[in-house]
């Protein structure tokens, strides 16, 4: 059984069909890519999977469970982690708090426990802090635990954001243009970093990316969409030489 199955997914914004009839099956443990020119509907596909939109047609099956129509926090609690094109850390909270808050789906206590600092509250808060610190150690970010994201270099912020997404303990990690805004040197590091995350946490990764270097050196399977429709699907080498993909990216030569 595949981890994530997208079945003839279609989404319309009013009269505009942003995504039409997309099918995709992600097997457990792979790294998958979703590419396409600007405005092709890639992020819309991600937003549909993570629950920001309810698809007009089609189904999203995660781990054997239909998840379309669930609000984003419910999708997140089913262990789908995600990052954004522009970094969305809580910049006014410490890195540690950023990581801790993502334990909300298994917080295990209520408001009254917080008021009276019950045993349950103390036990859970301790566990949450320890878990967060352990994760930061794995990522070698423990020195930044009490730092605010706004004081951290952009490249490191990306890593913190990925670490935060992983603190959900996800089975599937969705990266929306992880290399956006990074320098060439940072991009090379990011590639190694994503490889390392993939090996260390044994998770499935699905990414949107524009930089071919990233896609080609990481992904084992790629889907290309344009104007919301699938135009190609296959191994990186096949995609690279697919005339339709080249046409979508570069135009067809008629000026």
């Amino acid at each position: 059984m595949s981890l994530l199955k997208i079945d003839s997914l279609t989404h319309r914004f009013g009269g505009l069909t942003a995504v039409s009839d997309i099918n995709y099956e992600l097997e457990e443990g792979g790294i998958y890519g979703l590419i396409g020119p600007n405005g092709a509907g890639k992020t819309t596909v991600f937003n549909l999977v993570s629950g920001f939109y309810n698809p007009s047609e089609g189904d999203i099956i995660f781990n054997g469970e239909r998840i379309n129509g669930l609000p984003p926090h419910e999708v997140a609690s089913r262990q789908i982690g995600r990052t954004f094109q522009n970094i969305r850390l809580w910049s006014e909270m410490t890195v540690l708090d950023n990581i801790k808050i993502s334990q909300h789906y298994q917080i295990g206590y209520g408001i009254a426990d917080a008021f009276f600092k019950t045993k349950k509250f103390q036990k859970r808060e301790n566990e949450i802090t320890q878990k967060a610190m352990e994760l930061l150690k794995i990522f070698k970010l423990e020195d930044l635990a009490y730092e605010y994201p706004s004081n951290i270099p952009y490249g490191i912020q990306r890593r913190v954001e990925i670490a935060r997404a992983l603190s959900l303990g996800p089975k599937l990690l969705m990266l929306d243009e992880p290399a956006a805004g990074l320098s060439t040197a940072d991009v090379v590091e990011l590639i190694d970093y994503i490889k390392w995350v993939h090996e260390t946490f044994k998770i499935t990764i699905w990414m949107i990316e524009h930089q071919m270097q990233v896609i080609m050196s990481l992904c084992e399977h790629i889907k290309v969409i344009d104007f919301g429709k699938e135009i190609a699907d296959g191994l990186p080498e096949e995609i690279q030489n697919n005339p339709q993909v080249i046409k979508a990216y570069l135009g067809d030569g008629e000026i």
Partner: peptide
């Protein structure tokens, strides 16, 4: 508390809060 910090998370970025499993409603 981590529970209450979910309220501050809404202030700084509501979409982030949702995606990190905070039930914002």
């Amino acid at each position: 508390s981590t529970f209450g910090k979910g309220i501050s998370a809404i202030r700084y970025d509501e979409i982030s809060a949702e995606i990190m499993s905070v039930n914002t409603n």
